[in-house]
Design a protein around this nucleic acid. Structure first.
Lengths: 218, 218
DNA sequence: CTACAAAGTTAGATGACTCTAACAAAATAA
DNA sequence: TTATTTTGTTAGAGTCATCTAACTTTGTAG
């Protein structure tokens, strides 16, 4: 079994891995708020345990084993977020920090029960895919709202980096998953977008638009 | 804030404290499965933090501060057990180990929500009192079944040391909280009791009878 | 009252996880 | 291609939580 700390490194590796599945010490260090030398030594430990491929000065990749274990932690995290929202009445902006702790609970029956009570959900409250019981993550290729054009009509499917301040920002503007949004215009100088939805019009900055994942409605 | 380990020591001190509120290094050591020297050094740490009264070779007592913090952990444990049984459908024999982990979650809103969804319960699924939001535990003076006599009729109110094997033993005999039990007879040689309840008759050994807390029905 | 047993403490070591300071390699810019 | 910046590693130290071995204090049984 892995320590709580090792689990956090695994999850970070899982979340930071881009398309090529690679990360580096520096990103890991900043993402975890842990100094680089500490990360280096942990990478050696995880390599010993066959959880990562690691060679000095090279990019880091999870092994299949590591990917599975990380995926299962992410599964527990997202299942928990879903449970907190659906069964306990929390808002989507409140659940991250709680799930961050509950994801480390060692009890298969506990998470199986959540899964069952939720009806085996595929997505968490932020639209992220919940890995399956083997830790496998099904990828869905959404568009970023910032990549759409004036005139497009889209449906909001997910938010990336669901930090609570961003989610409260969305709450304040009545923006939630499933919302149908029409792009009225895009400012050329700062890429902010004027959006129409539910009889209202709002302007969103580029940063916000990059974090909203959508699909086009024909 | 206290570490996870410190929390476990506090809880052990809380649970082991008898009427006089005292414990000793040896009991703590055995209860936690940790060697005595380790316990001694932790007592020094907790004393530094004003959580226990500790002097070499003397019995150990929680301070008021320690008692409060310990009570709040026990509160989280028992609320969780209640939630797992009432809202998630677990059996009373399944919940201890899960609650043992969830009790360390740092999130007041999470436990407040449980409390509210449960309707502010006073007792956990094993009949133990849930400490209030100040960590204060209301004592209820039950009788042990083993202290009753043939002819007495009692109601089962709580079980002590609710280990899962004991609880499964009770499940197998249809024994649960609230059950009305009549004592038919007591064997003199081993103190086992013949009990009648719900149209059945069962013989329970002395160990089991000591762990069943009851109140007399006139 | 002595001797033995039980309980408790001290000393010293280990592993996990973290840090800072100093050095080395790789990437980038001039 | 050399100099500079960024990234990464080594070395050494500290804290937390644990252990074993050796010693001390307290309690108890003859």
């Amino acid at each position: 079994m892995n320590t709580l700390t090792e689990e956090n490194y695994l999850k970070a590796l899982f979340n930071l891995a881009g398309e090529n599945g690679e990360t580096n010490v520096n990103d890991l260090s900043r993402h975890l708020g842990i100094k680089m030398p500490t990360v280096t030594s942990m990478m050696k430990r995880l390599a010993e345990k066959k959880l990562v491929h690691y060679e000095s000065y090279k990019p880091i990749r999870l092994t299949e084993k590591g990917k599975k274990e990380a995926g299962l932690i992410v599964r527990k995290h997202r299942l928990t977020e879903m449970y907190l929202v659906e069964k306990m009445g929390f808002g989507w902006e409140e659940v991250h920090d709680i799930a961050e702790q509950i994801e480390h609970i060692q009890s298969p029956v506990f998470f199986d029960k959540m899964d069952q009570l939720l009806g085996f959900p595929k997505l968490d409250p932020h639209g992220a895919v919940i890995p399956d019981k083997n830790g496998k993550l099904a990828w869905i290729a959404y568009l970023r709202l910032s990549d759409c054009r004036p005139g497009d009509t889209v449906r909001l499917c997910a938010v990336v980096h669901g930090a609570s301040d961003f989610l409260r920002f969305l709450n304040n503007r009545g923006i939630r998953l499933g919302l149908r949004i029409k792009i009225k215009s895009v400012e050329t100088f700062d890429a902010s977008m004027v959006l129409a939805y539910e009889n209202r019009t709002e302007t969103l900055g580029a940063t916000a638009c990059e974090r909203l994942l959508v699909e086009k409605i024909k």
